[in-house]
Computed example of a mutant assay.
Amino acid sequence: MMGEFDAIRPYDDAEVPAVLARLFSDPAFLDILTHFRFPRAAGAFGWLLKPLIARRLRKEFAGVSCVATLQDKVEYYVDQTIDRATDGVTYSGVEQLKAGTAYLFLANHRDIVMDPAFVNYAVYHAGLPTPRIAIGDNLLQKPFVSDMMRLNKSFIVHRSLTGRREKLAAYQLLSAYINHSIRTDGASIWIAQAEGRAKDGDDRTDSAILKMFHMSRKDEPFGAVIQGLNLTPVSISYEYDPCDQAKARELYIRATTGSYTKAPGEDDKSIATGITGYKGRVHIHFAAPVREFFADTKLLAQEVDRQILGGYRLFPVHYLAYAMWQDADPALAVPPAEKLFQADELAKAKQEWQRRLDACPVEQQPYLVLQYATPVRNQYQVKVQSQVA
């Protein structure tokens, strides 16, 4: 029987062996793995390495017949990648998550693959089931990417539809799926607070996403639907963004020409850089689920923003960028980095920040500064507002 969510849902346990078999014989998938594992030899010896990698994968994943076992296997590689590309991951608020409860994790969005991966990592290491992950169909241009993501509990958000009616139907289905997942399946969901990454460092919740949660339950009050979904704001903070130079370039081109067109394969490149590039320290903060009754999306968006911006962890580099920023607001009384951090920690940050500035063309530098300075402004604005309230 065809289920109503078959077009978007993650693969279930029964589908795992067939999908793995399909992946391990997909030339494009093996090609990427070969380049990832053997960057130097892949060009000349790819033809020789690919069958070897395929054989090794089949052997290693031979006994895998369900999603949980697959995630246990993949976890080893995730941990390795995290060890190589970060100076450590910390998290707060994860202790308040309860086993047996499904949450709707609504997070700020900086990196295509690593944002949900770090949330997964925190939840997995807390001994709780990992969430199902919303991923835009614009990133699934190759069949193997779609297979890989849906094996790892991802479900598809149809973003590339153009017709109004199609868009509406897709949002309706998405809404029904998210509600079904949390209320019927008891499975948590991860979704970004807005479409696309916040390339300028300004994390804001798009009310259209909040509205979508309610779409499939229109006959119930908005506030009650949200209360029943355990909506949990999540702040993901990277000390350094591996894609910061590419984001600065895009922001500069947009500002000077009025638009920006992605080159073919640009998303794939962002994904690879985001996974393997140096991130410094990473912090994930889980706020308490929203319990208050919010009558409309605008008020809820303000509350979610307050939680995400307030829970963001500011590192020395953020204060260094803020001190250089032409739009810094003196009324916010942001202390200098020297007041907040140890000398050795600050010295290390100054060196890394200078390295990033030097790598960035002069005309693009203001957009690099902007990415790191904005979270400081946002958090201090939240502080000021909470003092007033």
Rank of each mutant, 00 (worst) to 15 (best):
M1W: 10
D6V: 10
A7E: 11
L20A: 00
D26W: 05
A28C: 02
L30H: 06
F36E: 12
G43A: 15
F45M: 14
G46W: 06
L48K: 07
L57Q: 03
K59T: 12
G63S: 14
T69H: 13
Q71N: 11
Q71D: 09
D72L: 04
V74E: 05
Y76F: 13
V78R: 01
Q80E: 13
D83R: 14
A85S: 11
T86G: 01
V89Y: 08
K98V: 12
K98D: 10
G100R: 01
F105G: 00
A107P: 01
A107N: 01
N108A: 07
N108G: 05
N108Y: 02
I112T: 03
I112F: 04
D115V: 03
L128Q: 03
T130E: 00
T130K: 03
A134I: 04
A134N: 04
A134G: 06
G136H: 05
Q141M: 09
K142M: 13
V145M: 11
S146L: 08
D147Q: 11
K167A: 10
N179W: 05
A187R: 15
S188L: 10
W190N: 09
I191V: 12
Q193G: 00
T205Q: 09
D206K: 08
I209C: 00
H214Q: 11
S216E: 08
D219L: 12
I226P: 00
L231Q: 08
Y238T: 09
R249V: 01
R249P: 06
L251Y: 05
A263S: 14
D267K: 11
K269G: 10
A272V: 06
G274S: 01
K279V: 14
H285C: 07
A288D: 13
V290Y: 08
A295S: 14
L299S: 15
D305A: 07
P316V: 06
H318N: 15
A321R: 02
Q326P: 11
E338G: 13
E345R: 05
L346Q: 02
L357N: 08
D358E: 15
Q364C: 08
V369H: 07
Q371W: 14
P375I: 03
V382Q: 02
V384A: 13
